[in-house]
Design a protein around this nucleic acid. Structure first.
Lengths: 139, 139
DNA sequence: TGTATTCCCTACTTATCCGATAGGGTTTAA
DNA sequence: TTAAACCCTATCGGATAAGTAGGGAATACA
């Protein structure tokens, strides 16, 4: 299950991407329009800024804006930042690998093999989907 | 992330499917061989029995056995039982649908559209994968 | 220069759920 | 009759998610 953190983050990104690139979007605006708790959203946007997806401007007229073009922002990257691993098991995760305590040999684990298939299919979608696609989907 | 419950359940099912169909497999055996807590496994097998995947026999020489042929047991069904929804968001779940508090209109939600794609891809794999395939994968 | 605006940062709370454990009860083969 | 095995309910500790609190720092603009 996707956390609300990730869901809100994606919605916020989409919202920002829809706006003029020139003037930044305020937390309060997104919070109101997308029905997201102001403070919670704040922490989400902050982490996306730190990760280099967003830039920010303080003071009056400030807010958040995209640092890259929307079609250069892959969903896989955003989700990895906000959610963590895309794989359904740590032992099949590419970026967050961890071995299982109970498995003496991963290659002999039926679940392992299955989950690699699922991971690859999911990744295929999330890599080829950009923020620009998301904006287009709802327009 | 797949819960241990589901992972253990799948491993146990695979283990049972590997055995002779005639004599039932004991919890203790699976627990030992697959390094799963005995009591925890007990509750998992119980729910799979109640769901109709497994049959059981009490008393000495008892244990669990498959009620259907392994190639008739779809991964999507097992996962839905043990894990719950396959979708990454309640609002795109086929079997556990729930609407989002924050979305006035699902069709206008960028995340919604994306997660439907992911769900369909995942489902495609899990529906076509049977317990028989899992056994074959590790043999 | 002052003030309102806006983002920045840390810490805390609260609820929920997962994984596991405890402790019996019931059925059955031998 | 007895030991093996499943059946059932209750409980618990720890982790995590979601949201809250409260102030700090930078900036535009009058």
């Amino acid at each position: 299950m996707l956390s609300k953190r990730t869901k809100y983050g994606l919605k916020a990104l989409t919202f920002i991407a829809k706006q003029d690139k020139e003037n930044p979007v305020q937390i309060a605006t997104i919070s109101k329009e997308e029905n997201i708790s102001h403070k919670f959203l704040e922490s989400i946007l902050l982490s996306m800024r730190k990760a280099g997806f967003l830039g920010s401007k303080k003071g009056k007229g400030g807010g958040y804006y995209l640092l890259k073009d929307a079609d250069k922002i892959q969903m896989s990257d955003v989700i990895r930042l906000l959610e963590g691993p895309i794989a359904m098991l740590p032992c099949v995760s590419l970026n967050f690998y961890e071995r299982c305590d109970d498995c003496p040999d991963e290659t002999k684990c039926s679940v392992h093999a299955l989950m690699i298939e699922v991971r690859d299919a999911t990744l295929e979608i999330l890599k080829n989907k950009t923020l620009a696609d998301l904006v287009a989907d709802i327009s």
